[in-house]
Simulated assay, not measured.
Amino acid sequence: MSDVILDKTQDENIPDNTLRTRHEDNHLRRADLNLLTVFDAVMQLQNITRAAQMLGMSQPAVSNAVSRLKNMFSDELFVRSGRGIEPTARAHQLYGPIRQALQLVTNELPGLGFDPQTSRRQFSITISSPLDILLAPKILSRLSQRSHCVTLNIESLVNENLDNQLRYQELEFAIGYRGIERSDFYNQKLFDDELVLISSRNHPRIGQQSSECYYFNEKHAVVRLSNHCSFSSPYYNTPETQQRVCYQGASLISVMEIVSQTQMLALVPGWLAEQNAHRLSLKIDTLDWMNNKLTSYLSWHESASKDKGNLWMKDLLMQCAELE
């Protein structure tokens, strides 16, 4: 009895933070950390079968691991959606920290660093329109030259949740005409685009006076202004300028098609206008009287800055942009 009392007395004399640390250590030792690699693969692919193939495991083994993960985190984590599965809000919340931890361990373990010649890693990036037209073919071509194992998923649809997608590493990088102005993000300038004014070659008034005059008098077509990533939004941010807008398209390609068949005007990057001028019978005018420079940026969250795979992909993306 006295031994029991003595042990209890010793525990009572131990600081609360030390007892809490002991409890956390014991809990961590009981957790199967190998399950985290399964979680990472399932989150990336959102499909049990493909995750099993990626991990070199059987499908039942991955399903069993997912069940154990649900118990570990006291959450469903994944629910069925069509032929695949969809992560819950809790799974999205866990993904960033777990992926960062796995990447840090992988970087430090001998022989487990990122090797593009053998890695089966899949990267996801977003490139806002119209930069996707310019850069995506070059990026995919360069990737095929550098690695036959690494895969890349490119999205052109940028939404209001972009910063969270990068923070939780649902996306590794974003390329667009706007950086992310937050302290935990990095923005690397890539190159400057020069905006020009396009119109139909059959427009009855264009060419009779300076572009500044008809810019303020004619109707305009733009990429949808409600999209916060629309590069044209700053040029139509007052009631007076918005009154000139008659058409809002989902992409610059649709905007240019409309301009070619109407008497509207549009602002577009010079390289895009040159690519389509002959096909669409467009007239191109310079905009020397206004600030027509548009800077493109490569953006990423600080959590991706030390991962060797991300550093390799960042270097590849910047090399493609340097060709401009």
Rank of each mutant, 00 (worst) to 15 (best):
M1Y: 11
L6M: 13
T9W: 10
N17W: 15
R22K: 13
R22I: 14
H23S: 13
N26M: 13
N26A: 14
D32W: 00
L33D: 08
L33G: 10
N34E: 10
T37H: 12
F39L: 08
A41K: 05
V42D: 00
V42K: 00
M43Y: 11
M43N: 07
Q44N: 08
Q46D: 03
Q46L: 02
I48E: 05
Q53S: 13
M54E: 15
L55T: 00
L55R: 01
M57T: 03
A61E: 09
V62M: 03
R68S: 02
M72R: 10
F73H: 02
D75A: 07
L77S: 02
L77C: 03
F78P: 04
R80Q: 13
S81N: 14
T88F: 01
A89R: 09
A89P: 06
R90L: 06
A91H: 02
H92S: 11
Y95S: 09
A101S: 10
A101K: 08
A101P: 09
Q103R: 14
V105T: 10
N107C: 11
E108K: 12
E108D: 10
F114R: 05
Q117R: 08
T118S: 14
R121N: 12
Q122C: 08
Q122T: 14
F123I: 01
F123T: 03
F123W: 02
D132Y: 03
L134Q: 12
A136N: 06
P137H: 01
K138W: 07
S141P: 01
L143V: 01
S144R: 12
H148S: 15
C149R: 13
V150M: 01
L157F: 14
E160L: 14
Y168D: 11
L171N: 02
I175M: 08
I175W: 04
I175L: 09
I180E: 03
E181R: 12
D184G: 03
Y186L: 15
Q188E: 14
D193S: 00
V196R: 01
S199I: 03
S200L: 00
S200E: 00
R201V: 05
H203W: 01
P204M: 04
R205C: 13
G207P: 07
Q209T: 15
S211A: 04
C213I: 14
N217T: 13
K219D: 14
K219F: 14
A221E: 07
S226C: 09
H228S: 12
H228D: 10
S230F: 04
S230I: 03
F231P: 01
Y235K: 02
Y236K: 08
N237G: 09
N237V: 04
P239T: 10
T241H: 07
R244G: 11
R244D: 06
Y247H: 12
I253P: 04
I253E: 12
E257S: 12
V259Q: 00
S260P: 02
S260C: 01
Q261N: 13
E274C: 06
Q275S: 12
A277Q: 04
A277N: 03
L282V: 00
I284G: 00
L287D: 05
D288I: 07
W289I: 07
M290T: 12
N291L: 05
N292T: 08
N292P: 08
K293A: 06
T295Y: 07
Y297H: 04
S299C: 11
W300D: 08
E302R: 11
A304E: 05
A304K: 05
K306P: 04
K308F: 13
N310I: 04
K314N: 14
L316V: 11
L317K: 10
